[in-house]
Amino acid sequence: MHALYEKIAEILELDEVVDSDKVDDLENWDSLSVFSILAHINTEYDVTISTEEMERIVTIGDLVLIVAQKTGNT
């Protein structure tokens, strides 16, 4: 999952992101960034995250956990 943290940081124009980062506190966490992250996850991990699931995400850790669970990498 290291590569996923790096990609999320790149999309958000940050040096790094960590599990405890609250997504609503991240400066570039907007609809375009979210769409880009979801598209990347879909392409690279073949994982789809629904709008409903996204609404429940509070931290970066929540997002990565969903991907890990859906890919069996927990």
């Binding site: 999309i11 769409f35 880009s36 598209a39 990347h40």
Partner: peptide, 9 residues
């Protein structure tokens, strides 16, 4: 192919 990303990338 489609690449979805902010134009800054």
């Amino acid at each position: 192919i489609v690449k979805v990303q902010p134009s800054r990338m």
